[in-house]
Simulated scan of single mutants.
Amino acid sequence: MEVIEIPSAEDRFVLHFETERHEVNAFALASSLVGLANAVKEANSIINPGYSIEVVVERLEDGSFRAGIRTIFKKTRSVFAHEAAKAIIYGIIGTWIYDQTLGEDKEPTIIVNDGSVEIRSGDKIIIVPREIYEAKKAVEKSERFQDSMGQVFNGALKDPDVTGLKITPPGKWPDIPSIPRDRFNGFVERYVGDDANTIYESAVLEISRAILSRGRRKWEFYWRGMKISAPVLDEAFYNDFFAHEITIAPGDMLSVVLKIYRKADPDSGILINSKYEVVEVSGHIPRGIQTSF
């Protein structure tokens, strides 16, 4: 019987590409890392309101090909002093991956205990802290999380020499099996479709014209010296605005997660930004003030 135990708290994890060459295509690595970073940020926005998260690559390791990754939490909104960020992102992602894998052939058996949940399928058992399992159920409802995880596997497919992929806590990688390449498409087909040429980027936007009502009407912003139009789709931001916790004026800035749609130029094949959406507002910076609150 193979038993996989998901740790209760971990702010570091390792992305493994299984390959005999001990190297990986740079584009495959970059694409997978962007997808993983976006998945981490989406999970964090759901389970850690009031905290933003930064994802950094600490090191590249020998072996097959491994990237060590660390998450860094930062307060973005008023939260009570005792409300620390929960370092359970790896647990959510690891549980989701193996839950999806076990569920491909037959619906797994779920046993809920007081402090843990057992996911049983065939000769495999995944033991998950109950807090992480409940958080995973909330996060997996997000299409953005699913799309981002699909991008992780779609990126790995771009290197024909990658035979497997896994995400593990540091120091425990021999104990957890890889997802074989022949199962990558199951993630990609289910979660990456017409939206495959979109990326999410943290950005600071200067407001040129605000639309102070909910919906898809486009605001106008300045970003990196150019003018862009984008709807603001963050319901929590509008809740704060209508509760008079935020006052908006031209020249103010918003710290946001920007969804960027891209399409290929027909002549060069280069991906060009075609439209934008603000999917999350993490901070409001009044005009003339250099730090957000």
Rank of each mutant, 00 (worst) to 15 (best):
R216H: 11
F153N: 06
P174S: 11
P177C: 05
D182M: 09
E206S: 12
P180T: 07
P174E: 11
K86N: 06
P108A: 00
Y133D: 01
D147E: 15
S148N: 01
G171A: 01
G164N: 03
F153V: 05
E201K: 09
Y191E: 08
I110Y: 05
E107Q: 12
L165I: 09
D194Q: 13
P160Y: 00
L165V: 12
E134I: 14
P180L: 06
S121R: 12
K86H: 09
D175L: 07
A138T: 13
T109N: 12
K106F: 15
G215T: 05
G122K: 13
W96H: 04
E134H: 15
D123Y: 07
L157M: 11
K158I: 09
R216Y: 11
W173T: 14
K124I: 12
T95P: 04
S213E: 15
A210N: 08
T163Q: 06
N154A: 15
V117F: 08
K86R: 10
R183K: 15
G193V: 02
P160K: 00
I97Y: 10
G115E: 15
G215M: 04
N185M: 15
E131I: 06
K106A: 14
G215S: 00
R144S: 13
W96S: 03
P170V: 03
Y200Q: 10
F145K: 01
S178I: 13
E143Q: 14
S178W: 11
I110V: 06
E201V: 12
I110R: 01
G122Q: 14
P129S: 07
I199M: 08
T95E: 00
G122C: 13
P169G: 06
W96M: 02
G186I: 12
A85G: 06
G164D: 00
I127D: 04
W96T: 05
I132F: 07
I119E: 02
K86Y: 11
D182S: 08
R130T: 08
R214V: 03
G171E: 04
S116Y: 07
I111D: 08
R181N: 02
Q100G: 11
K136C: 14
E118I: 06
A135W: 06
I126Y: 00
Q151G: 11
V188C: 05
D161N: 11
D147Y: 15
A135C: 05
K141C: 09
R214L: 00
I176M: 00
V112P: 09
D195K: 09
A87C: 12
G91Y: 02
R214E: 02
I207E: 00
I88W: 04
S116P: 13
V128D: 00
E118C: 08
E104V: 15
S202W: 13
I119A: 03
D105N: 15
V139G: 02
P174I: 04
R183V: 13
V117Y: 03
D114P: 09
D99F: 09
L212V: 08
G94P: 02
A203P: 04
G94I: 02
P108W: 01
R216W: 12
D105V: 15
V128C: 03
R120P: 06
I93M: 04
D161I: 07
I111E: 10
T198V: 06
S116Q: 10
S142M: 03
T109K: 10
D175G: 09
Y133N: 06
